[in-house]
């Protein structure tokens, strides 16, 4: 039996890898991929806690997180299509329309 703390450590490392990606990448799509990684790490943590506490509620919350991730991806990608149409780039460094 693998202890739940190992899953938690793995989830923490995955979350941090996603954070590094979201902070350092400049391509909008790559930033989104990193955010999906972070969401997935949280899902892993929720399922690990669900086993550790013997409570299936954690799995129900993962269901909600999945739905939110799907909505977020759809809206975010539509936003990037609109931005690309406006400036022909999705490099976040070059998006300065609203910069003061």
């Amino acid at each position: 039996m693998v202890p739940a703390s190992w899953y938690m450590l793995l989830a923490a490392v995955l979350f941090v890898i996603g954070t590094i990606g979201a902070l350092t990448r400049r391509n909008g799509i790559s930033i989104f991929l990193s955010i999906e990684l972070m969401l997935n790490a949280v899902n892993l943590l929720l399922v690990a806690y669900s086993r550790q506490l013997g409570d299936p509620t954690g799995q129900v919350i993962v269901f909600f997180v999945l739905a939110v991730a799907a909505a977020e991806a759809a809206v975010g990608l539509a936003l990037f299509i609109a931005i690309f149409r406006h400036g022909h780039t999705i490099d976040v460094n070059r998006m300065n329309l609203m910069r003061w």
Binding site: L10, V47, A73, A74, L77
Partner: peptide
Amino acid sequence: ALFLMLGAPFIATLQVLIYTGAIVVLF
């Protein structure tokens, strides 16, 4: 696969169906 090992077959199925089946295809 880790979800399966943690005893969450429903979540593992959803993960493959929704994430790799829908979201990644959208990407």
